[in-house]
Simulated assay, not measured.
Amino acid sequence: MIKLTIVAGARPNFMKIAPLIHQLQKKQEEGKAISFRLVHTGQHYDKNLSDTFFEELKIPKPDANLMVGGGTQAEQTAGIMIGFEKELAENPSDLVIVVGDVTSTMACSIVAKKANVKVAHIEAGIRSFDLTMPEEINRMVTDSITDYFFTTSSYANENLKKAGIEDDCIFFVGNIMIDSLVKNLERIEKPSFFDELQTSDKKYLVLTMHRPANVDNKENLERYLDNITSFAKDFTIVFPIHPRTKPIVEAIGKHYPNLEIVEPQPYLKFIYLLKNAAGVITDSGGITEEATYLHIPCITLRENTERPETCVLGSNVLVGNDFKALEENIKKITENNWKKVQIPELWDGQTANRIVDILFDLPL
């Protein structure tokens, strides 16, 4: 019997673990000797950013919730490590599976390795090469101690090889978050507020902002909002506001006539907004992948990306804080003049199948 421990901690993780769990459940129904425990670290503690994803994506309730909650990077990391060390001691595992690049990913990898438990990292090898991003440090630390690397792109493969990772530990399987997107496209739901907006399909933009560099400084965030609302003045801008961003926007205290601030959206409702938008302006990495698959124009408010395939092949364009480039690209969206989009290799909805097949062949 192979015993797995699957770790999830924050919103992006849930879309990545759902297809994996569904595929593992299928193998169990076929009589395969494999079991898993789902551990939720509680890193995201807002219900709209956490609980609803288990319900929507048909993920079983976690076997354990470490309930770490908020705090500084160090406080969260320490809390997760203390809780996960106890979890792993009480429930031995052959392999700990971590996904993405959140604090939980790094913290649980360290605990597992110190307990002499092997680690598999789904979405390994992606790099922004920007050490001001907490996520980049999480990626680097996790991949430095990981045993098995499941990658989304050739870029990720090359990053790992340059770091000295042996080829037989790297598995190019595709993008597991696209599995969730493909499976749920027919289930997306119109948000209750949508019909009240003074807009229609392809006549609005979606805006998301949560990165510290963009939102923690009040003047910086205000400048972004001033320019975005001005450049897209003929479009409604739907802004599902992250808990981190909300108090800063409230402190700015401005009313923008074409900016509709709404609560964080459950997955199925957010994908509805994204799929029917003229475009999206974001500082998220995952949204650039979803937008690429859906062929939705995407402007990223960052100087770099750990997902270069979304720019080279996909629908993504980096503008950072270059407001001239922001204006030019918003104009391209509003004039329906975006670049041609290709979906990257193996972003086909079958990544979880490939991962689970490989798990049975690993020397655990």
Rank of each mutant, 00 (worst) to 15 (best):
G9E: 01
A10R: 07
T5C: 11
R11Y: 09
A8P: 04
L20A: 09
N13Y: 08
L4Y: 03
I21R: 01
E29F: 11
L4K: 03
T5D: 05
L20S: 08
K32N: 13
K27L: 10
K27C: 11
L20C: 06
A18F: 02
K16G: 06
Q28K: 15
V7K: 02
P19R: 01
T5Y: 01
A10F: 07
A10E: 14
K16W: 01
K27F: 13
A8C: 15
K26D: 12
Q28I: 15
I17E: 00
A18L: 03
P12N: 09
Q25V: 05
A10M: 11
R11P: 11
Q28S: 12
L4M: 08
E30C: 06
M15L: 14
Q23W: 02
L24I: 12
T5G: 08
V7I: 15
K16I: 03
V7T: 15
R11F: 11
P19I: 02
A33T: 09
M15I: 15
T5H: 04
E30L: 14
T5S: 14
L24S: 02
R11G: 11
P12C: 08
P19M: 04
H22V: 07
P19Y: 00
M15N: 12
T5M: 10
A10V: 12
G31A: 06
K16S: 05
N13I: 05
Q25H: 10
Q28V: 14
E29T: 11
L20F: 07
L24T: 08
K32R: 14
M15Q: 10
A33Q: 14
R11I: 11
A33F: 04
Q23P: 01
L24A: 07
T5R: 02
M15Y: 06
I17S: 00
E29V: 10
K16M: 07
K26L: 15
K32C: 11
F14E: 04
K26S: 14
I17V: 14
K26M: 12
E29C: 09
K26C: 08
A18H: 03
V7L: 12
I21H: 02
Q28Y: 10
N13G: 11
A10T: 15
R11L: 13
I6F: 02
G31K: 02
K32M: 10
L4D: 03
Q28L: 13
L20M: 07
E30S: 13
G9W: 03
L24W: 08
K16N: 04
H22W: 13
L4C: 07
E29Y: 07
E29S: 13
L20H: 05
T5P: 00
A18P: 06
P12I: 09
E30H: 11
A10K: 08
E30Q: 15
P19Q: 02
V7F: 03
A18D: 02
G9P: 05
K26I: 12
Q23V: 09
H22S: 13
A8F: 01
A33Y: 03
A18G: 05
I17Q: 00
G31I: 03
V7R: 06
A33C: 08
V7G: 09
L20T: 05
E29Q: 15
I6N: 02
Q28H: 11
Q25D: 15
E29P: 06
L24M: 09
A8E: 05
K32G: 07
I17Y: 00
L4S: 05
A33K: 13
V7C: 13
F14T: 05
I6W: 01
E30K: 12
K27P: 06
T5K: 07
E29A: 15
A18R: 05
M15W: 00
K16H: 04
I6H: 02
M15E: 10
T5L: 07
H22A: 14
H22N: 13
